[in-house]
Nucleic acid binder design. Structure first.
Length: 357
DNA sequence: TCTGGGGTCCTAGGACCC
DNA sequence: TCTGGGGTCCTAGGACCC
C-alpha cells in the first residue's frame, strides 16, 4: 500500500435502542417503535431517543419533541428507555468489535472506531474483515450494524452513515475528496446546527464548498475549529483511534413535569440527585473537588454555577450542601424552573489519593 | 416542532504566582 | 511609576456528540 495508508473502521449499530427492544419482544417486529419520553397522549415533555425505520417513515426522528412524534404517529409503540439492557448489549458488541482491532475507541453507547491497519494488507481485505465483523455481530446478537471503512476516523465515520441500515461503505484515500465533496457540511463531525447555519451565511453548503473556501476566513470565523473543518473537507484528519481514558465528570439532571417556582420540590429533587451522583462517584472509587449545578428556567434560559472545594470528597452531605448553596440565588418566586442538574468533576482517584497521602 | 439526559471539549476573562 | 510575560487554576457559557 502506498505511504502506509491507515485502515479505520467506524461501526454504528442501526437504530440501536429500538433494535434491542424489538429483539427482546418479537411482537414489535414490523411496527413503528419509538424509544424516548412518555408521550402522555401528546402532552409529554422530552424527546425521541431512537425511532425504528417504520416510525421514520412517519417522519419521526431522534431529538424530535415527543409531542410532535405523537402527532405524526399516535399508533406507534412508545417505550421508555431501558438503559441497563442497552448497556449490557453494548458491552457484548464492543467486546466482539474490540477483538478485530489493533486499537479501539468506543464512541457513545453504540458506535466505535477500530484501527485495523496492521490486520489487513489492502482495502479488499479490509472489506472482507468488515463483513466478517458484521456477520459475527448478527449471528451472536441478532442486530445489524453499518460500517464505514476509510483512511481516517472522519472518513470512516461519514462512510458508516452513507448507507444505512446494515450498510458497508469503503472509501480509499484516493477517493476521499470525491466521496466527501457532494455531501452537505452537516455530515462532518463537529459541524452541528449552529455551525451549519454560520457556514450557510458564508455561502458554504457542501463539503466541497468548504474545501474551496478561503481557510483564513474559516479560521477567523471559527478559530481552531475552522482550520480543522477545512482540513476535514480535504479528507485530512490525523486524529488517532484511542482508547477512552477515565471518566471526567458524573452528572444527573431532571426536567420537572411542570415548571415550578416553588423551592421545596426543587430542593428535594436536588438532594435526591446529589445522593445519586455521590453514590455513583463512590462506586467508581472517585473523589471530586468541583461541584456544578445547572438551572433552566421555563423560557429555556440556562445557567451553570460551580465551586471548587478546598478538599476532595465523595460524601453526599458535602455535595448536597454545596449544591444547595450554588442553587440558592436561582430560586426566585418570580421565575419558574424547568430543569435542574448536579455534576461533579475534577476527580482524584483513590490510587492517586494514596500517593498524595 | 418546543426542545432529555449523559457526556466531552473549547473559549475567554480573571485571579494568582513567579 | 501606569506598568511584562508565562503558566496554571477557576468559572461560566456554549457547541457538539450519542
Amino acid at each position: 500500500m502506498p505511504d502506509k495508508q491507515r485502515v479505520i473502521f467506524h461501526i454504528d449499530m442501526d437504530h440501536f435502542y429500538t433494535a434491542v427492544e424489538t429483539r427482546e419482544r418479537p411482537e414489535l417486529a414490523g411496527k413503528p417503535v419509538v424509544v424516548g419520553a412518555d408521550p402522555k397522549g401528546g402532552e409529554g415533555r422530552g424527546v425521541v431517543a431512537t425511532s425504528n425505520y417504520e416510525a421514520r417513515k412517519a417522519g419521526i426522528r431522534s431529538g424530535m419533541p415527543i409531542s410532535r412524534a405523537w402527532k405524526l404517529c399516535p399508533e406507534s409503540v412508545y417505550l421508555p428507555p431501558n438503559f441497563p439492557l442497552y448497556i449490557r448489549v453494548s458491552n457484548e458488541i464492543m467486546t466482539i468489535a474490540r477483538g478485530y482491532a489493533e486499537r479501539f475507541e468506543q464512541w457513545g453507547i453504540d458506535e466505535a472506531f477500530l484501527d485495523v491497519s496492521d490486520k489487513v494488507k489492502d482495502y479488499a481485505e479490509a472489506e472482507t474483515l468488515a463483513k466478517k465483523l458484521k456477520q459475527e455481530i448478527f449471528s451472536k446478537e441478532h442486530l445489524t450494524a453499518s460500517i464505514g471503512v476509510g483512511p481516517t476516523k472522519l472518513i470512516a465515520k461519514v462512510a458508516s452513515d452513507y448507507q444505512k441500515p446494515n450498510g458497508l461503505t469503503v472509501v480509499k484515500a484516493e477517493d476521499a475528496e470525491k466521496f466527501l465533496h457532494p455531501l452537505p457540511v452537516r455530515k462532518l463531525l463537529w459541524v452541528g446546527r449552529k455551525t451549519e447555519a454560520k457556514l450557510k451565511e458564508l455561502g458554504v453548503n457542501t463539503i466541497g464548498d468548504l474545501a474551496n473556501f478561503d481557510p483564513s476566513v474559516l479560521t477567523d470565523a471559527f478559530g481552531v475549529a475552522g482550520t480543522q473543518m477545512y482540513l476535514m473537507a480535504h479528507g485530512v484528519d490525523r486524529s488517532e483511534v484511542q482508547e477512552r481514558s477515565e471518566v471526567k465528570s458524573i452528572s444527573h439532571e431532571t426536567t420537572f413535569e411542570k415548571d415550578t417556582s416553588d423551592a421545596q420540590p426543587v430542593l428535594e429533587a436536588l438532594d435526591a440527585m446529589a445522593q445519586e451522583v455521590s453514590k455513583e462517584a463512590a462506586s467508581q472509587k472517585l473523589f471530586f473537588k468541583t461541584v456544578t449545578i445547572k438551572v433552566r428556567y421555563e423560557n429555556f434560559e440556562t445557567h451553570t454555577r460551580s465551586k471548587t472545594l478546598q478538599f476532595i470528597t465523595n460524601r453526599p452531605q458535602d455535595l448536597r450542601k454545596t449544591a444547595r448553596e450554588l442553587l440558592a440565588q436561582y430560586l426566585r418566586v418570580d421565575r419558574k424552573i424547568r430543569l435542574i442538574g448536579v455534576r461533579v468533576s475534577n476527580f482524584v482517584s483513590t490510587e492517586k489519593q494514596q500517593t498524595l497521602a
